[in-house]
Amino acid sequence: MIIILAGGKSSRMGKEKPILKIAGKPMFFWIYEQAEKVDDVLIALSKNTPKTKGFCIKEGISFVETSGKGYIHDIQELLKEFGPFISVSADVPFVKASDFWLIKKAFDGKTSLTGVLPLSLVPKDLNPVVYKGYAIVGLNAVAEEGEEFFELSNPLLALNVNTPEELKLAEKISKILGYG
């Protein structure tokens, strides 16, 4: 199962991020379309994302509501309810079905996998979270035990849309890629 995490407060953006549009579609919907090519998909919402919930209801997209107390707490809730799963943040609009396939194939259901990119693949205009020499991306496999880095190769995974400037950049990239 793939769970799209779409329940955050969007404090840096100041707006409900999952439904912000890129190339005419809500950002999370680009992710959903790729994820559903690979596995069953569920959207994790909270009280912080009522418009995203409305979109899911309108479009018949399956969702679950979390407490919205924070990323780690919500992940723990989802793990308790569904067991091991693949997670992706609703603000990583350029994740591809092939990225999901790679992490799904490597996931044994026991050890968590944290999606990372070698810094050499990160486009120069982006400022991702860096840990132990890698850019941390919003695609992971969640399990009960341990954690390992899982190296991905899609450089656009480094774009996590958290600010209005990053949303503008995502819109420019979507035009280059022919979205819409």
Rank of each mutant, 00 (worst) to 15 (best):
E145C: 02
E144K: 14
K124I: 03
G138E: 12
A106G: 08
L157Y: 12
P118T: 05
G115Q: 04
N140Y: 11
S112V: 03
N154P: 00
L157P: 07
E144S: 13
P128H: 15
E145T: 02
L139K: 09
P128I: 04
V129C: 00
L117H: 10
P123Q: 10
E147S: 11
G138L: 05
V137P: 15
K110L: 12
L139C: 05
G133M: 03
A158H: 13
Y134A: 02
K104L: 03
Y131R: 13
T114V: 06
F150I: 02
A106N: 01
L121A: 10
V116F: 14
G133Q: 06
S153V: 05
N154W: 02
A106S: 12
L102K: 15
N140H: 15
A158E: 08
W101Q: 05
T114Y: 12
E151Q: 14
K110F: 08
L156V: 02
Y131D: 04
S153A: 06
V142C: 05
L119E: 10
G109A: 11
A106L: 00
F150N: 05
I136F: 14
G133D: 09
K124L: 04
L126G: 06
E148P: 00
L157A: 10
V142K: 15
Y131L: 05
L152M: 13
K132C: 02
Y131W: 01
K110Y: 08
S112G: 15
N127A: 11
V129Y: 15
V137F: 07
